[in-house]
């Protein structure tokens, strides 16, 4: 079921049933009520705080402005009839304007909308934001890899390939400017797509998190636009599905980045950066070995982007290697989430 379907179906729900769920704004509305019952009447004469009051006022003001302008125009024309109304032409005064049929009152120089334009205007969805809510990939295989998604070429939709999921790249060159101190290129990057047109980008090294939005434009070129609200920057690319675990993004200057599927997006999962895992590992082994750990290095497993390889170097022992999950901090022989350390 698509988000749009869910939205549309819910609109048919009985308000009495909907009332079983928390509605938004409860405390704001109660504050408004208590404010008014306590004598701070926002409807008091002379105090205008409500939006609809402003709507009324602006409507009246606009009407008054129109009447004044029309009156001024009429008076001008009455004073200069020969300049404005030579020959048999009708002199436009307030009276003639108001008496004229509606069709002659239409503003000039506004090209009429074609049917196609009208359709486009009516159908164009809002610019994808964090809550655009369309285009979740609907089919996943049991192993977490996407089954072949339906390719939709509608405008401004998140890509079906970017349904909820985590992808990894170590060459995200085109957007290196968004990273801390402009150096994303040298570090591996995880793109966590929440599935609703928004996502988070994590640096594998220090876990720096950058939110982004994405919009799939469809068409033969399969264009996708990434936006970074924090910087206001945009990045466009052509998307190509190499197989169901890899996507290629080709930028306007023909450079390419390849994203590898790393796993399902778990909203509750924590993203453990390499630095964080290294620090946790050092704490863990120092706890048991009385400070004998000299150094811990953490690198992403090149064959499995959701795994991190930890190398523990001791003061007087041979180094040991462990592998833990990027999003779990657990491995076959090591669980860094043990609470007894705290």
């Amino acid at each position: 079921m698509k988000d749009r379907q869910l939205h549309d179906l819910l609109q048919h729900a009985d308000p009495e049933e909907i009332a079983g769920f928390d509605a938004p704004g409860r405390e704001r509305v109660w504050a408004r009520i208590t404010e008014q019952t306590a004598g701070k009447d926002t409807d008091a004469p002379g105090k205008i705080t409500r939006r609809r009051d402003w709507v009324r006022i602006l409507t009246v003001a606009a009407a008054l402005a129109f009447v004044c302008m029309a009156a001024a125009g009429g008076a001008f024309l009455l004073r200069h009839p020969t300049e404005q109304g030579a020959g048999n032409e009708t002199v436009l005064t307030m009276e003639t304007y108001l008496a004229a049929p509606e069709s002659t009152q239409a503003p000039e120089n506004v090209p009429p909308q074609t049917e196609a334009e009208t359709e486009t205007a009516a159908e164009a969805p809002a610019i994808s934001g964090s809550d655009s809510g369309e285009g979740l990939a609907e089919t996943t295989r049991a192993d977490g890899v996407y089954a072949e998604p339906e390719v939709r070429n509608g405008p401004n939709q998140p890509s079906p390939y970017f349904g909820s999921g985590v992808w990894y790249t170590n060459s995200l060159r085109d957007i290196e400017w968004i990273g801390a101190e402009g150096c994303l290129a040298s570090a591996g990057t995880y793109l966590c797509f929440t599935g609703d047109g928004s996502g988070f980008l994590f640096l594998e090294g220090n876990g720096t998190e950058t939110p982004f939005q994405y919009e799939y434009h469809g068409g033969d070129d399969m264009n996708v636009t990434f936006r970074y609200p924090e910087t206001g920057e945009e990045s466009e690319a052509i998307l190509e599905l190499k197989n169901f675990t890899a996507i290629t993004l080709t930028y306007p200057d023909l450079r390419k980045d390849t994203l590898h599927y790393a796993g399902e997006f778990d909203p509750d999962a924590h993203f453990y950066s390499n630095d964080e895992l290294a620090s946790m590992t050092a704490d863990w082994f120092n706890y048991f070995s009385d400070g004998c750990v000299r150094n811990v290095t953490a690198v992403t497993d090149p064959d499995a982007p959701d795994q991190v390889i930890l190398t523990v170097e001791y003061v007087s022992y041979d180094p040991e290697t462990y592998t833990v999950g990027r999003f779990t901090a657990k491995g076959d022989t090591l669980d860094l989430t043990g609470k007894h350390l705290q």
């Binding site: 939205h7 819910l10 928390d22 509605a23 938004p24 405390e27 934001g129």
Partner: peptide
């Protein structure tokens, strides 16, 4: 889900209420 899909509230609005 109800606030998002029935009331069309944004994530920020929902977050503030909850």
């Amino acid at each position: 889900l109800i606030q998002k899909f029935y009331y069309d509230s944004t994530a920020e609005e929902i977050a503030s209420g909850l």
